[in-house]
Write a protein that binds this DNA or RNA. Structure first.
Lengths: 135, 135
DNA sequence: TTGCGTGCAAAGGTTTTGCATGGCA
DNA sequence: TGCCATGCAAAACCTTTGCACGCAA
Protein backbone atom coordinates (compact mmCIF):
# COMPACT_ATOMS: atom_id res chain seq x y z
CA UNK A 1 0.00 0.00 0.00
CA UNK A 2 1.39 3.34 -1.02
CA UNK A 3 1.38 6.15 1.46
CA UNK A 4 -0.76 9.18 0.82
CA UNK A 5 0.85 12.42 1.89
CA UNK A 6 -1.20 15.31 3.17
CA UNK A 7 -0.49 18.26 0.96
CA UNK A 8 -2.27 21.56 0.81
CA UNK A 9 -3.20 20.95 -2.82
CA UNK A 10 -4.87 17.72 -1.92
CA UNK A 11 -6.75 19.38 0.93
CA UNK A 12 -7.82 22.28 -1.26
CA UNK A 13 -9.20 20.00 -3.94
CA UNK A 14 -11.12 17.84 -1.49
CA UNK A 15 -12.47 20.84 0.38
CA UNK A 16 -13.69 22.42 -2.80
CA UNK A 17 -15.42 19.26 -3.94
CA UNK A 18 -17.08 18.76 -0.59
CA UNK A 19 -18.36 22.30 -0.55
CA UNK A 20 -19.93 21.96 -3.97
CA UNK A 21 -22.97 19.80 -4.20
CA UNK A 22 -23.25 19.53 -7.95
CA UNK A 23 -21.11 18.13 -10.68
CA UNK A 24 -17.63 19.45 -10.91
CA UNK A 25 -15.22 19.28 -13.78
CA UNK A 26 -11.46 19.34 -13.52
CA UNK A 27 -11.57 22.74 -15.14
CA UNK A 28 -13.95 24.05 -12.48
CA UNK A 29 -11.57 23.02 -9.75
CA UNK A 30 -8.56 24.63 -11.36
CA UNK A 31 -10.44 27.85 -12.04
CA UNK A 32 -12.12 28.16 -8.66
CA UNK A 33 -9.03 27.35 -6.66
CA UNK A 34 -7.10 29.79 -8.75
CA UNK A 35 -9.64 32.49 -7.95
CA UNK A 36 -9.25 31.71 -4.26
CA UNK A 37 -5.52 32.17 -4.49
CA UNK A 38 -4.87 28.44 -4.14
CA UNK A 39 -3.14 27.75 -7.39
CA UNK A 40 -3.16 24.09 -8.30
CA UNK A 41 -1.96 22.80 -11.61
CA UNK A 42 -4.25 20.97 -14.00
CA UNK A 43 -2.08 17.87 -13.89
CA UNK A 44 -2.30 17.73 -10.13
CA UNK A 45 -6.05 18.07 -10.23
CA UNK A 46 -6.42 15.20 -12.66
CA UNK A 47 -4.02 13.02 -10.74
CA UNK A 48 -5.80 13.71 -7.49
CA UNK A 49 -9.24 13.13 -8.98
CA UNK A 50 -8.07 9.79 -10.29
CA UNK A 51 -7.01 8.72 -6.84
CA UNK A 52 -10.19 9.92 -5.21
CA UNK A 53 -12.26 7.99 -7.71
CA UNK A 54 -10.18 4.88 -7.11
CA UNK A 55 -10.56 5.23 -3.37
CA UNK A 56 -14.31 5.58 -3.75
CA UNK A 57 -14.55 9.07 -2.31
CA UNK A 58 -15.60 10.49 -5.67
CA UNK A 59 -17.85 9.33 -8.42
CA UNK A 60 -16.90 10.06 -11.97
CA UNK A 61 -19.50 10.73 -14.62
CA UNK A 62 -18.93 10.80 -18.31
CA UNK A 63 -20.58 13.35 -20.51
CA UNK A 64 -20.09 14.02 -24.17
CA UNK A 65 -17.64 16.73 -23.29
CA UNK A 66 -15.34 15.59 -20.59
CA UNK A 67 -15.75 14.09 -17.16
CA UNK A 68 -17.61 15.34 -14.12
CA UNK A 69 -17.01 14.42 -10.54
CA UNK A 70 -19.16 14.36 -7.47
CA UNK A 71 -18.55 13.76 -3.82
CA UNK A 72 -19.82 10.30 -3.02
CA UNK A 73 -21.65 11.04 0.20
CA UNK A 74 -24.08 13.17 -1.78
CA UNK A 75 -25.03 10.31 -4.00
CA UNK A 76 -27.95 8.74 -2.28
CA UNK A 77 -28.19 6.00 -4.83
CA UNK A 78 -28.81 6.59 -8.47
CA UNK A 79 -29.73 9.86 -10.00
CA UNK A 80 -29.95 11.02 -13.55
CA UNK A 81 -28.36 13.64 -15.69
CA UNK A 82 -30.03 15.88 -18.17
CA UNK A 83 -27.91 17.72 -20.65
CA UNK A 84 -29.21 20.53 -22.77
CA UNK A 85 -28.12 20.06 -26.35
CA UNK A 86 -28.51 23.76 -26.96
CA UNK A 87 -26.71 25.54 -24.14
CA UNK A 88 -24.73 22.58 -22.85
CA UNK A 89 -25.84 22.88 -19.25
CA UNK A 90 -25.79 19.66 -17.28
CA UNK A 91 -28.60 19.18 -14.81
CA UNK A 92 -28.43 16.87 -11.88
CA UNK A 93 -31.81 15.40 -11.09
CA UNK A 94 -32.57 13.70 -7.85
CA UNK A 95 -36.10 12.43 -8.10
CA UNK A 96 -37.93 9.50 -6.64
CA UNK A 97 -39.75 8.68 -9.81
CA UNK A 98 -36.57 8.68 -11.83
CA UNK A 99 -34.83 6.61 -9.21
CA UNK A 100 -37.32 3.88 -9.93
CA UNK A 101 -36.20 3.63 -13.53
CA UNK A 102 -33.08 1.57 -12.92
CA UNK A 103 -34.87 -1.01 -10.72
CA UNK A 104 -37.64 -1.25 -13.28
CA UNK A 105 -35.24 -1.85 -16.14
CA UNK A 106 -33.35 -4.38 -14.06
CA UNK A 107 -36.48 -6.25 -13.15
CA UNK A 108 -38.40 -6.10 -16.42
CA UNK A 109 -35.69 -5.86 -19.00
CA UNK A 110 -32.75 -7.62 -17.39
CA UNK A 111 -30.46 -4.69 -17.88
CA UNK A 112 -28.32 -3.06 -15.21
CA UNK A 113 -28.27 0.67 -15.87
CA UNK A 114 -25.07 2.51 -15.04
CA UNK A 115 -26.09 5.98 -13.98
CA UNK A 116 -22.54 7.25 -14.18
CA UNK A 117 -22.62 6.88 -17.91
CA UNK A 118 -26.20 7.71 -18.61
CA UNK A 119 -27.14 11.18 -19.73
CA UNK A 120 -30.45 12.15 -21.20
CA UNK A 121 -30.29 14.79 -23.88
CA UNK A 122 -32.84 17.38 -24.73
CA UNK A 123 -33.73 21.01 -24.22
CA UNK A 124 -33.76 22.83 -20.92
CA UNK A 125 -36.52 25.24 -20.02
CA UNK A 126 -34.82 28.35 -21.31
CA UNK A 127 -33.60 26.92 -24.58
CA UNK A 128 -36.94 25.26 -25.22
CA UNK A 129 -38.73 28.56 -24.82
CA UNK A 130 -36.31 30.26 -27.12
CA UNK A 131 -36.83 27.65 -29.78
CA UNK A 132 -40.57 27.95 -29.56
CA UNK A 133 -40.23 31.69 -29.91
CA UNK A 134 -38.58 31.27 -33.28
CA UNK A 135 -41.08 28.85 -34.66
CA UNK B 1 -36.75 22.96 -43.76
CA UNK B 2 -33.29 22.75 -45.19
CA UNK B 3 -32.69 20.48 -48.14
CA UNK B 4 -30.37 17.55 -47.81
CA UNK B 5 -28.31 16.92 -50.88
CA UNK B 6 -27.30 13.46 -51.93
CA UNK B 7 -23.53 13.38 -52.13
CA UNK B 8 -21.30 10.40 -52.51
CA UNK B 9 -19.61 11.19 -49.21
CA UNK B 10 -22.93 11.07 -47.45
CA UNK B 11 -23.83 7.79 -49.13
CA UNK B 12 -20.46 6.28 -48.31
CA UNK B 13 -20.73 7.19 -44.65
CA UNK B 14 -24.25 5.84 -44.31
CA UNK B 15 -23.43 2.65 -46.20
CA UNK B 16 -20.45 1.98 -44.03
CA UNK B 17 -22.38 2.50 -40.83
CA UNK B 18 -25.24 0.32 -42.00
CA UNK B 19 -22.87 -2.50 -42.79
CA UNK B 20 -21.32 -2.35 -39.34
CA UNK B 21 -23.49 -3.24 -36.42
CA UNK B 22 -21.07 -2.52 -33.64
CA UNK B 23 -19.07 0.37 -32.26
CA UNK B 24 -17.98 2.81 -34.89
CA UNK B 25 -15.99 5.92 -34.23
CA UNK B 26 -15.52 8.89 -36.50
CA UNK B 27 -11.94 7.78 -36.86
CA UNK B 28 -13.03 4.31 -37.98
CA UNK B 29 -15.16 5.79 -40.70
CA UNK B 30 -12.41 8.02 -41.99
CA UNK B 31 -9.88 5.22 -41.97
CA UNK B 32 -12.09 2.55 -43.50
CA UNK B 33 -13.44 4.75 -46.24
CA UNK B 34 -9.94 5.87 -46.99
CA UNK B 35 -8.87 2.25 -47.37
CA UNK B 36 -11.75 1.71 -49.78
CA UNK B 37 -10.61 4.57 -51.88
CA UNK B 38 -13.49 6.78 -50.76
CA UNK B 39 -11.62 9.61 -49.15
CA UNK B 40 -13.80 11.65 -46.84
CA UNK B 41 -12.45 14.35 -44.60
CA UNK B 42 -12.74 14.16 -40.85
CA UNK B 43 -14.78 17.35 -40.73
CA UNK B 44 -17.28 15.98 -43.19
CA UNK B 45 -17.66 12.81 -41.19
CA UNK B 46 -18.35 14.69 -37.99
CA UNK B 47 -20.76 17.04 -39.67
CA UNK B 48 -22.64 14.21 -41.30
CA UNK B 49 -22.77 12.14 -38.12
CA UNK B 50 -24.26 15.08 -36.30
CA UNK B 51 -27.05 15.35 -38.82
CA UNK B 52 -27.75 11.64 -38.77
CA UNK B 53 -28.01 11.69 -35.00
CA UNK B 54 -30.38 14.64 -35.12
CA UNK B 55 -32.53 12.91 -37.68
CA UNK B 56 -32.67 9.81 -35.52
CA UNK B 57 -31.03 7.50 -38.02
CA UNK B 58 -27.99 7.07 -35.80
CA UNK B 59 -27.44 6.58 -32.12
CA UNK B 60 -24.51 8.35 -30.56
CA UNK B 61 -22.96 7.00 -27.45
CA UNK B 62 -20.05 8.00 -25.31
CA UNK B 63 -17.04 6.05 -24.27
CA UNK B 64 -14.10 7.10 -22.16
CA UNK B 65 -12.32 7.94 -25.36
CA UNK B 66 -14.59 9.74 -27.72
CA UNK B 67 -17.95 9.08 -29.28
CA UNK B 68 -19.23 6.02 -31.07
CA UNK B 69 -22.12 5.69 -33.46
CA UNK B 70 -24.49 2.95 -34.42
CA UNK B 71 -27.07 2.58 -37.12
CA UNK B 72 -30.57 2.00 -35.92
CA UNK B 73 -33.33 1.47 -38.43
CA UNK B 74 -35.79 1.00 -35.63
CA UNK B 75 -35.33 4.40 -34.13
CA UNK B 76 -38.58 5.79 -35.39
CA UNK B 77 -41.16 6.55 -32.79
CA UNK B 78 -40.69 6.81 -29.09
CA UNK B 79 -38.92 4.07 -27.28
CA UNK B 80 -35.84 3.81 -25.19
CA UNK B 81 -32.42 2.49 -25.98
CA UNK B 82 -30.14 0.54 -23.71
CA UNK B 83 -26.53 0.15 -24.66
CA UNK B 84 -24.39 -2.53 -23.11
CA UNK B 85 -21.03 -1.01 -22.30
CA UNK B 86 -19.43 -4.44 -22.32
CA UNK B 87 -20.58 -6.17 -25.50
CA UNK B 88 -21.87 -3.11 -27.31
CA UNK B 89 -25.30 -4.47 -28.08
CA UNK B 90 -28.01 -1.86 -28.51
CA UNK B 91 -31.39 -2.84 -27.12
CA UNK B 92 -34.66 -1.31 -28.19
CA UNK B 93 -37.12 -1.19 -25.37
CA UNK B 94 -40.77 -0.59 -25.91
CA UNK B 95 -42.29 -0.18 -22.51
CA UNK B 96 -45.15 1.84 -21.17
CA UNK B 97 -43.41 2.65 -17.94
CA UNK B 98 -40.33 3.97 -19.68
CA UNK B 99 -42.45 5.95 -22.08
CA UNK B 100 -43.73 7.90 -19.12
CA UNK B 101 -40.25 9.16 -18.29
CA UNK B 102 -40.15 11.94 -20.85
CA UNK B 103 -43.54 13.36 -19.89
CA UNK B 104 -42.55 13.20 -16.22
CA UNK B 105 -39.31 15.07 -16.81
CA UNK B 106 -41.12 17.63 -18.91
CA UNK B 107 -43.75 18.20 -16.27
CA UNK B 108 -41.67 18.05 -13.11
CA UNK B 109 -38.25 19.16 -14.27
CA UNK B 110 -39.03 21.45 -17.18
CA UNK B 111 -36.79 19.57 -19.53
CA UNK B 112 -37.75 18.26 -22.93
CA UNK B 113 -36.02 14.93 -23.43
CA UNK B 114 -34.99 14.08 -26.96
CA UNK B 115 -35.33 10.33 -27.20
CA UNK B 116 -33.42 10.29 -30.47
CA UNK B 117 -30.31 11.41 -28.66
CA UNK B 118 -30.79 9.57 -25.42
CA UNK B 119 -29.23 6.22 -24.69
CA UNK B 120 -28.93 4.56 -21.31
CA UNK B 121 -25.75 2.68 -20.53
CA UNK B 122 -25.17 -0.37 -18.46
CA UNK B 123 -24.75 -4.12 -18.60
CA UNK B 124 -27.01 -6.52 -20.42
CA UNK B 125 -28.06 -9.78 -18.87
CA UNK B 126 -25.24 -11.88 -20.28
CA UNK B 127 -22.45 -9.46 -19.53
CA UNK B 128 -23.80 -8.81 -16.06
CA UNK B 129 -23.73 -12.50 -15.28
CA UNK B 130 -20.22 -12.81 -16.57
CA UNK B 131 -19.06 -9.99 -14.37
CA UNK B 132 -20.65 -11.52 -11.33
CA UNK B 133 -18.92 -14.79 -12.13
CA UNK B 134 -15.57 -13.09 -11.75
CA UNK B 135 -16.33 -11.49 -8.45
C1' DT C 1 16.64 10.68 3.66
C1' DT C 2 13.08 8.52 0.94
C1' DG C 3 9.91 8.68 -2.43
C1' DC C 4 5.35 10.50 -3.34
C1' DG C 5 3.27 14.97 -4.86
C1' DT C 6 3.51 18.97 -7.67
C1' DG C 7 4.22 22.30 -11.47
C1' DC C 8 5.31 23.24 -15.99
C1' DA C 9 5.22 22.43 -20.54
C1' DA C 10 4.68 19.52 -24.20
C1' DA C 11 2.38 15.87 -26.28
C1' DG C 12 -1.73 13.12 -27.63
C1' DG C 13 -6.17 12.64 -29.00
C1' DT C 14 -10.86 14.03 -30.38
C1' DT C 15 -13.97 17.36 -32.17
C1' DT C 16 -14.98 21.98 -34.01
C1' DT C 17 -14.56 25.95 -37.04
C1' DG C 18 -13.33 29.35 -40.81
C1' DC C 19 -12.92 29.88 -45.42
C1' DA C 20 -12.62 28.87 -50.18
C1' DT C 21 -14.11 25.48 -53.37
C1' DG C 22 -16.98 21.74 -55.22
C1' DG C 23 -21.23 19.82 -56.57
C1' DC C 24 -26.36 18.76 -56.12
C1' DA C 25 -30.89 20.39 -57.45
C1' DT D 1 -27.73 29.78 -60.40
C1' DG D 2 -28.42 29.28 -55.43
C1' DC D 3 -26.99 26.99 -51.63
C1' DC D 4 -25.56 23.25 -49.12
C1' DA D 5 -21.63 19.98 -48.66
C1' DT D 6 -16.84 19.26 -48.63
C1' DG D 7 -11.77 19.63 -47.81
C1' DC D 8 -8.04 21.49 -45.62
C1' DA D 9 -5.80 23.31 -41.97
C1' DA D 10 -5.84 25.54 -37.88
C1' DA D 11 -7.86 25.94 -33.60
C1' DA D 12 -10.13 24.55 -29.48
C1' DC D 13 -10.50 21.24 -25.88
C1' DC D 14 -9.69 17.78 -22.55
C1' DT D 15 -6.48 14.74 -20.60
C1' DT D 16 -2.07 12.50 -20.08
C1' DT D 17 2.92 12.29 -19.55
C1' DG D 18 7.99 13.30 -18.74
C1' DC D 19 11.02 15.46 -15.89
C1' DA D 20 12.97 18.12 -12.29
C1' DC D 21 12.01 19.94 -7.99
C1' DG D 22 9.31 20.38 -3.61
C1' DC D 23 7.84 18.61 0.45
C1' DA D 24 5.57 15.29 3.90
C1' DA D 25 6.82 11.60 6.91
Amino acid sequence: MKSDYETKQKAAIIDFIKSNSGHITAKDIVRELSDCGEKVSTATVYRRLDKLVSSGMLKKYITDKGACYQYSSECHGDHFHLKCTSCGTLFHVDCEFLMSIAPHIMEHHNFKVDSRRTVMYGLCENCNMEECAYE
